[in-house]
């Protein structure tokens, strides 16, 4: 078990380095993308600054709180696409029969697929989140550890949801659009103060679109540390990831390796 885990960590590392060197092939574009992303995020900071200047707190959220969820979201989405950058291509890989290459290799298909690409632009998101964190909390080792943990758990929530959405492709044809919508929803729900959502929306953000677990729940733990809550978060996180695995593997049995195209007359 431990050996297996080590093997996969090594695989992730190898992919990561290879991707980095592929990105370095286009150095200028890599740097522009990273800066572009960071700039992109800076504009949102500006947005909140204006809003809070005009209003004061939004519900129970102060500027600091919004910055915290913003930082977690930014870094989590960044980490998701740096480590598991190929998740967003799953639908296309299925439709075009390109899963074949991964199925011919002696590794877990899903892990092999999602790790094999890394998004260069996402470095901007990852770094930006940490910069905002330091701006809000200063150097606080305890909080930094929690923050990093939430970035990882957030990245896993995002990746799990995308895997599930893309796995619909096995059954109903290209579901890229659905997956992209899921991604947009997750982003948008996780960066606005939790208090603006009520009723059934609140239910949604803690279930089918777990934005609440990506940022709001972690924020509560950051505000007031309770080991039980942390444990709960990690358990829920694992449950989502395992569900994603099961759904992907169920779908994989229906994989047609691009034959769909030739049989559709």
């Amino acid at each position: 078990m431990l050996m297996e885990a080590r093997k996969y960590l090594r695989l992730i590392k190898d992919y990561f380095l290879l991707n980095l060197s592929a990105a370095m092939e286009y150095r200028a574009s890599f740097i522009i993308q990273v800066l572009g992303m960071a700039l992109n995020n800076a504009f949102f900071l500006f947005f909140w600054w204006i809003v809070f200047n005009n209003t004061g707190n939004i519900g129970n959220y102060s500027f600091r709180h919004v910055m915290t969820i913003w930082a977690i979201a930014s870094s989590a989405f960044g980490a998701a696409f740096i480590l598991f950058g190929n998740t967003r291509n799953i639908s296309n890989l299925i439709v075009q029969g390109e899963l074949d290459v991964y199925l011919l290799q002696p590794k877990n298909v899903l892990i092999n697929v999602i790790c094999s690409r890394s998004s260069a632009a996402s470095w901007g998101d990852l770094l930006y989140g940490f910069i905002v964190f330091f701006a809000v909390y200063g150097f606080n080792p305890g909080k930094l550890m929690l923050f990093t943990l939430f970035v990882v758990s957030g990245a896993l929530f995002i990746t799990s949801m995308l895997i599930i959405a893309h796995s619909f492709t096995f059954r109903m044809g290209n579901s890229s659009n659905i997956a992209n919508a899921v991604l947009e929803f997750l982003i948008s729900f996780s960066i606005y103060p939790e208090d603006i959502f009520k009723g059934y929306i609140k239910f949604i953000i803690y279930s089918v679109l777990p934005a609440g677990f990506i940022t709001f729940f972690p924020l509560r733990i950051m505000n007031e540390f309770k080991p039980v809550m942390l444990l709960a978060l990690l358990l829920i996180n694992t449950a989502y990831f395992i569900t994603a695995f099961i759904i992907f593997y169920r779908g994989l049995k229906k994989y047609e390796s691009g034959n769909l195209i030739t049989t559709r007359m």
Binding site: V51, I58, S188, Y192, P193, I196, F197, I201
Partner: peptide, 10 residues
């Protein structure tokens, strides 16, 4: 929808 909620609270 998000904006309607956000501004409502504000």
């Amino acid at each position: 929808f998000i904006f309607i909620n956000l501004w409502r609270v504000i």
